[in-house]
Design a protein around this nucleic acid. Sequence first.
DNA 1: CTGAAAGCGCTTACAG
DNA 2: CTGAAAGCGCTTACAG
Lengths: 332, 332
Amino acid sequence: MNVTDKTIRHVAREANVSVTTVSRVMNGSEKVSPATREKVLKAAEKLHFTPSRTAIALVTKRTRTVGVVVPYLDNSIFSSMIHEIEQTLSELGYFLVIAVSNNRIEEETKSADRLLAMGAEGLILSGADHDAALLSRLGVRNIPVIFTSIWNEAAEYPTIGYDNFGLARIAVRHLEKLGHRSIAVLHGPSDRSDRTRERIRGLVEGKSDRTTLLFFEGEVSAEAGARGTRRALERSPKPTAVIGLSDIIALGAIFEANRQGLTLPADLSIMGFDNLEWSEECCPRLTTLELPTRRMARAAAEAIVAKLETDQPIAPICFDGSLIIRESTAPA
Amino acid sequence: MNVTDKTIRHVAREANVSVTTVSRVMNGSEKVSPATREKVLKAAEKLHFTPSRTAIALVTKRTRTVGVVVPYLDNSIFSSMIHEIEQTLSELGYFLVIAVSNNRIEEETKSADRLLAMGAEGLILSGADHDAALLSRLGVRNIPVIFTSIWNEAAEYPTIGYDNFGLARIAVRHLEKLGHRSIAVLHGPSDRSDRTRERIRGLVEGKSDRTTLLFFEGEVSAEAGARGTRRALERSPKPTAVIGLSDIIALGAIFEANRQGLTLPADLSIMGFDNLEWSEECCPRLTTLELPTRRMARAAAEAIVAKLETDQPIAPICFDGSLIIRESTAPA
DNA sequence: CTGAAAGCGCTTACAG
DNA sequence: CTGAAAGCGCTTACAG
């Protein structure tokens, strides 16, 4: 890509062979004599030759690039998901391009188009809820797509994720088992996230008739968690437990409870969703639902590459999450 | 890039002009009659034509892509930095590719090479401390580079960042003004981060002779912050204040202090560095040094594009940070 | 096992 | 204002 960059022709000249032969060596073709291969390799090394990805992309119509758009980057499990995807793709000889949607459909659509423009041959998206126009464009162009962080066999594209509904049901049952009958639920924008909607549904359908759920919607942030907790504690009777549908929201709840001078978890049980890096470390240590982020990320990356390489259909996968009981929840 | 994708030739045929003319229209050249331009635009739209970035890159030797490698993605200011860089580049018609180094020189080198392989024409790196071989490779290829998050006029490449030394000095003086004479400093791996070293130097050179600094090194995480605090509180006399050289470390300190039943900030003052999104919300609200991340990110992106477009030399910039005094620090 | 030639989808002198 | 032709750096039939 640079003036000083050597081309395949320089190598050919240096090794006294044709560019065809150089190309074959660079691509590990068998049909080259060991001696010739040696010569070419030596010449390539001597000239610091790196094949032009651009030229290769133009002729092969392959970029070996996959795109992923995530709702958030900070204070979320998405950064570890990206890390795992990148690692897996890298092992498979692929590149990753990423974009952030802030959980907004329009931003996601713009981001996805941008990633496509950057050469993404396949896309990994969060959730199953997307702009219809985007989906149809992807369909027309025949772009492999995987929906992650969700499990939905009826979705337009294969989902590789986990069962938000079932996990939320586990959460509410844990709280009920401890005797909680009035629970505040702090969650992000439900109209913009099917994962959130699924969790809410799991809570609602998983709870017993004697349990009351109070919902507070806000952003996915500690600030929103604190605010939701404040509003929840103004109710009477006060809820005895709060569940944040993301750990960062639960963290805000802890902050607010501390600020109000409550003793945790005696005065208020708090649960999260994610199991972020600091969740075990916070005070009290956070009871939460661990999501199978890394396994999911790896599986998604592998599946999309398999699809790209051998046109193998993508098999939907539902990974298990797990309840991690720590110190932030106690009997009501 | 796809079978169904139209090429410039299809458009030319549809509009009854040459590919040269289509190219000119797509590039907004003046030398096209309005009527012809109209015809071409109509044809392009009708065929859903999108020029192949790959082909354009091959012939122009320009990818309009810049790469940035950051030490971390989660629990850090780097995600907002990336967001701002991406936005700026996007406004300027450029693309962003990113990679994470985990603050390790070797990973950074690998990442940088990967970004270059992906077509990055310029690189934004954190700090001024990098693999010599990488730097020389960048020099040979004449790749524009900017070092961020640091200020160092003697660096091999222009720095667009802030004065970690000066900011740390402000921090220690704030604590001293409150009467603290024994201060625990919790920081990340100093051998891997010149930014950390600068901050430590600022603390050491900024403090008065009567103040004692106790250093505890660990990862950049809440867990490490908690562990460092634990060890610090085993000392006698106990430090009356702790400063985490990142907010996430300070958060760990808060967790640990809470766990030990301390009353904050009366029993222990805690300060951070970053001003993350939740720093104002935590309990007690965190006194910290706000870093000019967004301004810095925008300036870096603009500078590297200017360099790429007009070969304008990159002017180093030092942005101001600021001390934000909140509730986590009190008189000793 | 090796190479000459065509072609991927564009841009850019050059000529008119 | 418009177009024919060469060429960017590779790969891939095809021929030998």
